[in-house]
Design a protein around this nucleic acid. Structure first.
Lengths: 257, 257
DNA sequence: GAGTGGTCTAGACCACATC
DNA sequence: ATGTGGTCTAGACCACTCC
């Protein structure tokens, strides 16, 4: 069941990576432990420092270790997962007065913070325009961008898109949207959320996302493109959630048939 | 809205990466196009080859480009997504006689192939044991591992776990399980699937997964831990799906409240 | 100040692809 | 045969952390 070839035929950098990986998987190097320094590894394996460095990079790309400048390379700690369930859109949760994010944060004993980064009228990206049924070549949407933090650590970026013609002149264009948030206001506009569609993909973060979320290499993001449908089965809100994948899991429970 | 600092203060490798990234995003380098060779970039920017190489590695980690040994570095082509919907467990789909995978492959005009990699009695991993409600310290499960291909390209790895006490001596231990597959047999054993739970995470592939799936660097995997519940609300089957994230998306549609 | 990772140089040889 | 990426060497200096 060995994936790589015999270690004797492997380049030194891969061999070093393999031995470190084995030590991590066997628990000889526990989460939080520091690896030997690059110089120490180079000496130990009688290679140049760059070769040891390449080995560590391979492990970092797999998400097994994280380098901290000036301090060392450490085995990554398994992170408690934020879990966003399929009930996150339900009214019963909304009645707690807490958004799904605040609810989950409280469940984990963390402090939630939400920064409103921008509220602007825009031309929608193609995928948003299709799902919200608005033209992509006009400034047809209101775009609200928020950043979410747990204990001051960023965990998700959310972009919400609404029809400009509906949002114009309402509290939806304000940072504080009032009781029950945007869904409360949208209900007043006649949209009762009756069905949702979530489209889920994973990818590596863009440079901007990596910066905002403070992502080390080897951590992908989960992207959820969410569409809310009203009682007429018309879409009235589309959001793009970008989660750091090492802190977040999604959870869907559904009846069959 | 610039994320990095002024380009003048950036190291050369990042500056090269930034300019190439800009060229890709602006469309000057289209999907499928070849980048200048490492040696050409090094000459152009008056740096060592390793510095140009480092720039390309940054782009590869973002998933923007893929290197092909002996051939060049190419802008990655957007991949048509395999979409697995929340209806994939429904009986109506099962009545087509096609598994969800074969159904989706046909929808895309691709040829599906499923390899049975192994069918063994095992001690379950911790997460599986919890969800299937079996002891983790005994050989309490049957483990079926399959690899799925579309047009001979691997797209997912599936590990299905069943209670050994139920599966023993039944066609469930055989490669070919008969009409309607394992769910058909499990129904004969008294388990009607009435509810499912999917737990979704994303991460970088293990070395073994990267090999099986043929993943270039910069492509994460989507992991779905799926639990089937029967009419008594008891779990009777747990599967772990590992999808390559650049080819696969998940799709859930659900009523609210 | 000592030790760590981050970046870079100017070479070299190897493995693979293409013609 | 030529050109490409893959790996390696043996140095160097910088930026950061920790004591």
């Amino acid at each position: 069941m060995k994936t790589p070839g015999p270690s004797s035929t492997q380049p030194p950098s891969r061999r070093i990576a393999e031995e470190l990986r084995a030590a991590i998987e066997a628990g000889h190097l526990a989460p939080g432990d520091r690896l030997p320094s690059e110089r120490a590894l180079a000496h130990q394996y009688e290679t140049a420092r760059n070769t040891a460095r390449e080995a560590i990079r391979l492990l970092a790309e797999e998400g097994l270790v994280t380098a901290r400048h000036g301090s060392g390379v450490f085995v990554r700690e398994p992170q408690r997962l934020f879990r966003f369930g399929s009930d996150r859109y339900s009214r019963s949760n909304r009645e707690t007065g807490l958004t799904p994010f605040r609810l989950e944060a409280r469940r984990q004993g963390k402090e939630a913070r939400i920064d409103v980064v921008g509220i602007t009228r825009e031309r929608p990206p193609q995928d948003i325009a299709e799902r919200l049924a608005v033209p992509a070549d006009e400034e047809s949407v209101l775009h609200r961008e928020n950043h979410y933090f747990a204990d001051d650590e960023p965990v998700q970026i959310v972009s919400t898109y609404l029809r400009w013609e509906e949002a114009e002149g309402t509290p939806l264009t304000q940072p504080r949207t009032g009781k029950d948030g945007i869904y409360g206001r949208l209900e007043e506009l006649g949209h009762v959320m009756t069905r949702v569609r979530d489209e889920i993909t994973a990818r590596m973060p863009t440079r901007a996302e990596a910066t905002v979320l403070g992502l080390p290499s080897g951590v992908p993001v989960l992207e959820v493109l969410h569409t809310s449908l009203d009682q007429e089965d018309e879409p009235f809100e589309v959001s793009r959630y970008v989660h750091r994948a090492d802190r977040t899991g999604l959870f869907y429970e559904l009846p069959v048939e």
